[in-house]
Each structure stands twice: as structure tokens, then as C-alpha cells.
């Protein structure tokens, strides 16, 4: 028959044993260890939470009034002269300025029938890299997908360590009592 674990009892009848137990693991060391682990977990959690909303708030406050619409992905440079189409005075580089060019982007489709006559729409072949969020202002920031799981792992490890220590302490105590 397996040995039945005995419930921890007050050690009123064994003050000497309790004193010995406290000498192996003094109470202040145990409390300090728990407080230290809790502080580490808390600081990691606070750091993760505090940085994200602050960044989000700054992005939300970006002024959007009065500026020309900025591309949300890589701008097109049709004539490859280094000047993006949205600020290029001769988009197709044919020597005719945009204001007088019947085919601004030089794609063979007259402006009147061209759904994107100045080719200022985003270049579909160049998309923003993964894990990068882009706002209308063109501002970018990197997000870290490992941050939350790492914090949870540290937290779980800390809690597990505390539980294990408590159980070992109880077991040692009950063994001595028995």
C-alpha cells in the first residue's frame, strides 16, 4: 500500500524540530527569494506592457491633416531616375512635363482612359517586410513576437520553483515528524 502523505500539522509538540527547519531555510531567505522572483516577473511584464501602448499612442497622434497622401508601400519610379512618381515632374521621362503629357506614365494608355494615369499607386511587387507595421506617416517600428511567450515561460518557471521548494520542505518536515 502506498505511503499516504500526511497533512502538515502544527508542530506544537516539536519546537526543536521547527527551529532546526528554520535554521536550514531561514524564513527571511525564503521570503526574500519569493519577493525577488515576483519583482523580476513584474518588471518584465511592466516593461512589455509599457513600451507598446506608448508607441501606439505616439503613432495615433501623428498629424494627418494638410499633407499629400503618402504611399503606404514602396513608391513607383517609372523612369528610374531616382525621383518617385509622386514628386517627379516628368514621370515617364519622355521630355514632356506631366501637365502637358497626354500619357503621363508612358504605358500606352491615354490619361483619360488610364485607371492610374500617373502611376502613383503602390508598387504591388514590393510589400513591407514581415513584422513591420507602417502608418500613414511612413513611421515604422519592429514588433517582437517572442516577448510574451518568454515572459510567460519565466513566470511559469518561477511559480514552479516556488511550489517545488514548498513541497520539498513539507515532505522533509513530514518525514521528520513520522
Amino acid at each position: 500500500m502506498p505511503k499516504q502523505r500526511k497533512k502538515r500539522k502544527p508542530v506544537a509538540g516539536a519546537p526543536t524540530q521547527a527551529r532546526n527547519q528554520n535554521q536550514v531555510f531561514p524564513r527571511w531567505i525564503r521570503i526574500s527569494a519569493v519577493v525577488l522572483i515576483l519583482m523580476l516577473m513584474l518588471s518584465a511584464l511592466v516593461g512589455a506592457i509599457a513600451s507598446a501602448p506608448a508607441k501606439a499612442a505616439s503613432l495615433q497622434s501623428t498629424p494627418t491633416v494638410s499633407f499629400s497622401p503618402l504611399p503606404t508601400c514602396a513608391p513607383i519610379d517609372t523612369d528610374h531616375d531616382g525621383i518617385p512618381n509622386n514628386i517627379d515632374q516628368d514621370i515617364d521621362g519622355d521630355g514632356i512635363v506631366n501637365g502637358k503629357d497626354p500619357d503621363i506614365d508612358g504605358d500606352g494608355i491615354p490619361n483619360a482612359h488610364d485607371p492610374d494615369p500617373a502611376s502613383t499607386n503602390c508598387d504591388a511587387s514590393t510589400t513591407p517586410p514581415l513584422n513591420v507595421q507602417q502608418t500613414n506617416s511612413g513611421e515604422q517600428f519592429q514588433s517582437n513576437p517572442w516577448r510574451i511567450p518568454v515572459i510567460l515561460l519565466i513566470g511559469a518557471g518561477g511559480v514552479g520553483y516556488i511550489v517545488l521548494r514548498r513541497r520539498r520542505g513539507q515532505k522533509a518536515k513530514s518525514d521528520k515528524v513520522d
Binding site: 509622386n86 514628386i87 515632374q89 506631366n98 501637365g99 503621363i104 500617373a118 502613383t120
Partner: peptide, 13 residues
Amino acid sequence: PEVIAATNSYAGR
């Protein structure tokens, strides 16, 4: 399109 492209290209912001 001609006026829009020309204006934006010379206006900057």
C-alpha cells in the same frame, strides 16, 4: 490627371 500630377510634382508637400 495632368493637372493633379503636375501640381503634386511641383508642390512638394
